[in-house]
Write a protein that binds this DNA or RNA. Structure first.
Length: 493
RNA sequence: GGUUCCGUGGCCGAGUGGCUAGGCACUGGUCUGCAAAACCAGCUACAGCGGUUCGAGUCCGCUCGGAACCUCCA
C-alpha cells in the first residue's frame, strides 16, 4: 500500500520563496524539522504556546501521513543579551541575579514549566530537544569555520559575522526578509559596542564576557558566550544535517534570527539549512502581539484556571487548542474571551459527537460519500496544513452522526473506517483531548448514573416534575448534563 | 522612514478569478411535561474608490484603517 503522503502530497507556503511548493523531502519518506524553541527565562505565555502548538500539529500530521519525522526543537538556555551593548545583560543571568539563583536553576524551573504547559495543550515531545549550553563546542567550531572562510572577524575578543564580505562573495543576506543592505544600515541605531563592528549589520557569533556576565565559556578568542543566532545553526546541522526539510519558528524570528541562521549555514556549508521555512503567526491580545517585555500577555495557566481579569472563566487546554486550530497557523489570531467561549461550544459539540459515534450501529448505506469526505479532509490538511478547513469538514460529519439516534447511515465496513478517521483527525492530528484525568466514564459511575436516570424516568412517568427537575438541576450543578432523547436519556460530563 | 502582511456578515474565522466554508450568536420550526441537546430552515458579507476580465472577496493601482519586523521576544 502506498503511504498516505503519496496519496495526499503536502504543499507548503515557503517563506523563503514566498510561494506554495510541494514538499519533496531531502530523503524519501523522512522529514527533518527544526523549530526554534523558547528562551527559558520566564513563564511561557500563550503566544509562545500558539507557535509550538502549530508546529506540533504539523509534526502530528506529517507523522500521520507516514513520514518518519525527526523533530528537533531547542531550548535556549544561554539567554540572549537584552541589548546590543557590551554592558548588555543576559536575560537568564539577569533573572538569576534578581532571584538570587544559579542561572541553571532559572533554566530548570522554566523548562519544566514549559514542558508542563505544552503537555497540557496536548503537544507531543519533540524527537530531540537540545540546549544551547550543551552545544558550545559545536558553536565554537562553526564560528571558526566562518572565520576560516573569511566571512567573520575577531574584534576585541568578540567575533562578528561580516555581512559585507559575505555578500561581496555572493552571499545573499536579506533573502528571507527581503531587506536590502543599505536600508539596514540607514535604519540601524547607534549603540554602544557598535564600534567593534565593521558594519552595523554585522552580528555576533561569539561575545567576550564582561566581568559581570555569569554564563561564560573559554574559546580561542576570549572567555565568553555564543552569539544570538548561532545555536540554531549549530544544532540543526548537528541533528538534521546541512540540508534538511522544514525550519519553523514564530514570525517575529524571521528577521534577524532566521536571516542570520541562513547566512551562518550558507557560510559554513554552502546550503541554507532548510529547504522550506515556515513561520507561525502571532497571537494578539487586544490587537497587539503578546510579549513578555511589554507585559501584554496571558499565561496558559491563567487561561486554564480563569485567573485573569480578561477572562470570564477558565478554559480547558483542549478548548484552547481547538481555538488555535480554528485559525490558520499563518494568520494572526486575536484572543478574546468571546472567541474562546464560542470555541468551547464548538469543541464540546465535536467531542460529544465523537462520543456518540462510539455507540452507533451501522444502518446500511446512506448518501454520505465517505471516501469523498476523507479525501476532502486530507486535502485540506495537505494544503499548507489548513486546520480550519479540516474542522469545517468535521462539522459536516457531526451532522451525519447526530442525524439519527442509535444508528448511522453508513455500511458496517464504512463505519469502521469512519470511526478510525474521525479518531485520527480529532485526536492524532488536531491533538484534542477528552476530559483530563480519566477520559472514559468509569463503570461504577455509569451504573450509578443508570440508576439516577431510571429514578428520574420513574418520576417523569408519575408526572412528578419536581423530583425530575431536581435531579436534572442538581446533576447539572455538579457538571453532569442529562440529554433526553427519543430512545432514553444519556449523560455527559 | 523601510520591509512584510492584513482589513470578510452581530462576533470569531477559511476562502490559490467562476456554484452555500465552518463555528458561535440570533430567528422560525420539529422533538420535549418544561428545558437542554439534536435535527430542519432562515440570516448571505467581502474597508472605500478606480482598473483588468465574459466574470473579482480572490489580480492591478490609489485612499483610509490595523498588525508584525527593522532592538531580545514564538
Amino acid at each position: 500500500m502506498n503511504p498516505l503522503y503519496s496519496t495526499y502530497p503536502v504543499h507548503i507556503e515557503n517563506s523563503l520563496t514566498g510561494a506554495k511548493e510541494q514538499l519533496v523531502p531531502v530523503s524519501e519518506g523522512h522529514i527533518g524539522m527544526y523549530v526554534c524553541g523558547p528562551t527559558v527565562y520566564s513563564d511561557v505565555h500563550l503566544g509562545n504556546a500558539r507557535t509550538f502548538t502549530s508546529f506540533d500539529f504539523i509534526f502530528r500530521y506529517l507523522s500521520h501521513l507516514g513520514y518518519k519525522v525527526r523533530y528537533v526543537r531547542n531550548i535556549t538556555d544561554a539567554g540572549h543579551l537584552e541589548n546590543d551593548a557590551d554592558e548588555g545583560e543576559d536575560k537568564i543571568a539577569k533573572k538569576a541575579r534578581l532571584e538570587q539563583l544559579e542561572p541553571m536553576e532559572i533554566v530548570q524551573r522554566y523548562t519544566v514549566d514549559f514542558h508542563k504547559v505544552m503537555d497540557r495543550l496536548g503537544a507531543l515531545p519533540p524527537s530531540i530537544e537540545p540546549t544551547a549550553t550543551g552545544h558550545i563546542v559545536e558553536q565554537i567550531e562553526m564560528t571558526q569555520a566562518i572565520i576560516d572562510k573569511g566571512w567573520a572577524y575577531e574584534s576585541n575578543g568578540s567575533v562578528y559575522f561580516d555581512v559585507d564580505a559575505y555578500n561581496r562573495d555572493g552571499g545573499d543576506y536579506g533573502v528571507l526578509s527581503g531587506r536590502k543592505m543599505d536600508e539596514l544600515q540607514s535604519g540601524s541605531r547607534a549603540l554602544d559596542g557598535q564600534e567593534e563592528k565593521r558594519n552595523p549589520a554585522d552580528f555576533a557569533l561569539w561575545k567576550k564576557a564582561s566581568p559581570a556576565h555569569i554564563m561564560r565559556w573559554p574559546s580561542p578568542w576570549s572567555v565568553g558566550f555564543p552569539g544570538w543566532h548561532l545555536e540554531c545553526s549549530a544544532m540543526s546541522t548537528k541533528y538534521l544535517g546541512e540540508e534538511f526539510d522544514i525550519h519553523g519558528g514564530g514570525m517575529d524570528l524571521k528577521f534577524p534570527h532566521h536571516e542570520c541562521e541562513i547566512a551562518q549555514n550558507t557560510a559554513t556549508s554552502g546550503k541554507k539549512g532548510a529547504k522550506y521555512w515556515l513561520h507561525a503567526n502571532m497571537l494578539t491580545l487586544n490587537g497587539k502581539r503578546m510579549s513578555k517585555s511589554t507585559g501584554n500577555t496571558i499565561l496558559p495557566g491563567e487561561l486554564f484556571s480563569g485567573n485573569n481579569p480578561l477572562l470570564a472563566k477558565g478554559f480547558r487546554p483542549s478548548v484552547v487548542r481547538f481555538f488555535m486550530m480554528q485559525a490558520h497557523y499563518s494568520s494572526v489570531l486575536d484572543f478574546s474571551n468571546e472567541a474562546l467561549l464560542a470555541a468551547e461550544k464548538g469543541h464540546d459539540k465535536l467531542l460529544a459527537a465523537w462520543s456518540k459515534l462510539q455507540g452507533l450501529e451501522a444502518s446500511g448505506s446512506g448518501d454520505f460519500d465517505l471516501q469523498a469526505w476523507i479525501d476532502k479532509c486530507y486535502q485540506s490538511l495537505s494544503d499548507n496544513f489548513n486546520s480550519p478547513i479540516l474542522i469545517a469538514h468535521l462539522f459536516e460529519a457531526i451532522k451525519l452522526i447526530n442525524q439519527n439516534e442509535g444508528s448511522i447511515a453508513l455500511s458496517a465496513s464504512d463505519l469502521v473506517v469512519f470511526k478510525e478517521k474521525m479518531n485520527a483527525f480529532v485526536f492524532d492530528i488536531l491533538g484534542l483531548q477528552m476530559e483530563e484525568g480519566g477520559s472514559a466514564h468509569s463503570e461504577a459511575l455509569d451504573k450509578a448514573m443508570d440508576l439516577v436516570i431510571e429514578l428520574r424516568a420513574k418520576a417523569r412517568e408519575n408526572k412528578d416534575w419536581g423530583t425530575a427537575d431536581l435531579i436534572r438541576d442538581q446533576l447539572s450543578a455538579a457538571g453532569i448534563k442529562l440529554k433526553d432523547g427519543a430512545e432514553g436519556t444519556s449523560y455527559e460530563i
